[in-house]
């Protein structure tokens, strides 16, 4: 009666590869020197297939070759990564559970959610920074908008799509329009693709999305780049000014880092960092960055904490200065 699934024959064969249990054993903390002696779990707080997921998977392969142990990627999507972050905080600090942490969870989400739901990056050990993602403000060609000046001069209320509440997309647009004195209404969508669709379909006038998502549409002339929020002009978009050049202070990027639970031994963190630096050096990974328009930000833990804590403070000040309420209430 057990021959109900034709998969079983195949499955049994494959199962011969066999593996040990994945429950947390109690004797693991003993020898950090021997790390790693078993598989490392990499948590990702976003859905499979999203930017963060792809970055994590691109990194995991070469790093596991260096560690000589597999790195198992596990998606624990929810609340912009807060679900995964909470699980990581509760995990044993032995280097066998790590996570790809998104910057927005550390420095933008706290501006939008109540204090008790905010995640503090200082409660984790940062292994290494990964890369940064820039935002670009795009407009539907039918609006006629070509630059921020044009939007201001139109002297009409505009609608802009965001990729969600508490995201960099929302923060960049709201800061820009507050500083430019444009009467703008945010329409939150659920992620980059729906926001982009809303611009292409003319449902909204503009939206800030991640560069990689909009690249093809811009090249095809279906979306007009207004301004990027990068620190300096991205090489593939030399004609689009940055917000700073246009005269606005909107220093917002998405950033990602590998983090471990607080209290992970220093030599384990160093070992992981060495492994990920191997990944960063791979040509395939560099090509991936180029393809996705990601700027490497492969800094050490202390530097990254400084960046992210600095961003949180900057955004808090900017949001207070312009009286922006990200939670939309």
């Amino acid at each position: 009666m057990n021959k109900k699934l034709p998969a079983l024959g195949l499955a049994t064969v494959l199962a011969l590869a066999g593996c040990g249990g994945n429950l947390e054993s109690d004797d693991s903390g003993s020898a950090a020197a021997a790390y790693p002696e078993r598989a490392v779990t990499m948590l990702i707080g976003q859905d499979a297939g999203g930017s963060t997921d792809l970055i994590g998977r691109a990194l995991a392969d070469p790093a596991s070759a260096d560690l000589k142990q597999p790195i198992t990627v596990q998606n624990r999507p929810g609340a912009n990564g807060a679900v995964a972050a909470k699980e990581l905080a509760a995990a044993k600090p032995d280097g066998y559970t790590i996570m790809v942490f998104v910057g927005s969870l550390a420095y933008i989400t706290p501006l939008a959610v109540p204090a008790d739901q905010a995640v503090d990056i200082n409660n984790y050990e940062v292994v290494t920074g990964i890369s940064q993602d820039d935002y670009v403000l795009i407009a539907n060609p039918k609006t006629g908008f070509k630059d921020v000046q044009g939007i201001v001069a139109a002297k009409r209320p505009i609608k802009y799509a965001t990729t969600g509440v508490g995201t960099g997309s929302q923060l960049t647009s709201s800061l820009l329009f507050a500083q430019a004195g444009v009467d703008a209404t945010a329409v939150p969508f659920n992620g980059g693709a729906p926001a982009l669709t809303a611009v292409l379909g003319g449902q909204v006038d503009v939206a800030a999305v991640q560069l990689g998502e909009a690249k093809e549409q811009i090249e095809a002339g279906k979306a007009v780049p207004i301004v990027t929020f990068a620190e300096k002009r991205p090489t593939y978009m030399p004609d689009t000014p940055t917000a700073a050049e246009a005269g606005y202070k909107v220093p917002v990027q998405q950033s990602r880092a590998v983090v471990a639970p607080k209290g992970t031994p220093e030599e384990v963190v160093d070992r992981l960092r060495t492994a990920f630096q191997k990944s960063f050096g791979e040509q395939a990974y560099k090509d991936f960055n180029t393809q996705r328009l990601l700027t490497p930000n492969e800094v050490d833990g202390a530097t990254l904490l400084q960046q992210w804590n600095g961003s949180l403070q900057t955004y808090k000040d900017l949001v207070a200065e312009h009286k922006i309420n990200l939670s939309g209430k």
Partner: peptide
């Protein structure tokens, strides 16, 4: 049957699909 179910589940979910379900 119950032993068979465990063996088959192990082969399928842990062995073939590499699902991360807690296993001993």
């Amino acid at each position: 049957t119950s032993v068979g179910i465990v063996v088959v589940f192990y082969a399928l979910f842990v062995g073939a699909l590499d699902v991360t379900i807690p296993h001993l």
